[in-house]
Simulated assay, not measured.
Amino acid sequence: MHGRQQPPDAFPRRPLGVTGLHVTPVCVGGGPLGSMPGLFGYDVSAERGTETALAALTGPFNFLDTAAGYSDGESERRIGAALLRIGGVPEGFVLATKVDRDFTTGAFSGDQMRRSAEGSLERLGLDRLPLVYLHDPENVSFEAGMAPGGPVEALLDMQREGVIGHLGVAGGPVELMARYLRTGHFAALITHNRWTLVDRSAGDLLDEAVSLGVGVVNGAPFGGGVLAKGTATSTKYAYRQADDEVLRRIRLMEAACAAHGVPIGAAALQFSVRDPRITSTIVGVSRPERIAETARLATWDIPDELWETLAPLTAPEEFWRW
Rank of each mutant, 00 (worst) to 15 (best):
G125Y: 04
L126F: 04
L126I: 03
D127G: 15
R128A: 10
P130S: 14
L131T: 12
L131S: 12
V132S: 02
V132K: 05
Y133V: 01
H135K: 02
D136F: 00
P137L: 11
N139F: 15
N139M: 12
S141D: 13
F142A: 12
E143C: 10
E143S: 14
E143R: 10
A144D: 15
M146Q: 05
A147Y: 03
P148K: 02
G149C: 02
G149T: 06
E153Q: 03
E153D: 01
A154E: 01
L155P: 01
L156N: 06
M158P: 04
M158G: 00
Q159S: 05
Q159D: 00
R160Q: 15
G162E: 13
G162P: 13
G162L: 11
V163C: 04
I164K: 05
I164V: 10
G165A: 09
H166C: 08
H166M: 07
L167D: 08
G168C: 01
G168F: 04
V169K: 03
A170S: 15
A170M: 05
G171C: 12
G171V: 13
G172L: 15
G172P: 00
G172D: 09
P173N: 12
P173K: 12
P173L: 10
P173W: 11
E175H: 14
E175G: 09
L176D: 01
M177H: 09
A178D: 15
R179E: 04
R179T: 01
Y180C: 12
L181K: 11
L181G: 10
L181R: 11
R182D: 15
T183Q: 06
G184R: 10
G184D: 09
H185V: 07
H185R: 13
H185Q: 13
F186H: 03
A188N: 08
A188Y: 10
A188M: 11
A188C: 14
H192N: 14
H192R: 12
H192Y: 15
N193V: 08
W195E: 00
W195Q: 04
T196A: 04
S201D: 09
G203L: 13
G203E: 14
D204V: 11
L205W: 00
L206P: 03
D207A: 14
D207I: 06
A209I: 11
L212Q: 05
G213A: 09
G215Y: 06
V216N: 03
V217Y: 02
V217D: 06
V217T: 07
N218I: 01
F222C: 05
F222M: 10
G223A: 10
G224A: 14
G224C: 11
G225R: 07
V226D: 04
L227H: 05
A228D: 13
T231A: 03
T231F: 03
T233A: 15
T233E: 15
S234W: 08
S234N: 11
S234Q: 13
T235C: 08
T235H: 08
K236D: 15
K236I: 02
Y237A: 10
A238C: 14
Y239L: 08
R240V: 14
Q241S: 13
Q241A: 14
A242K: 04
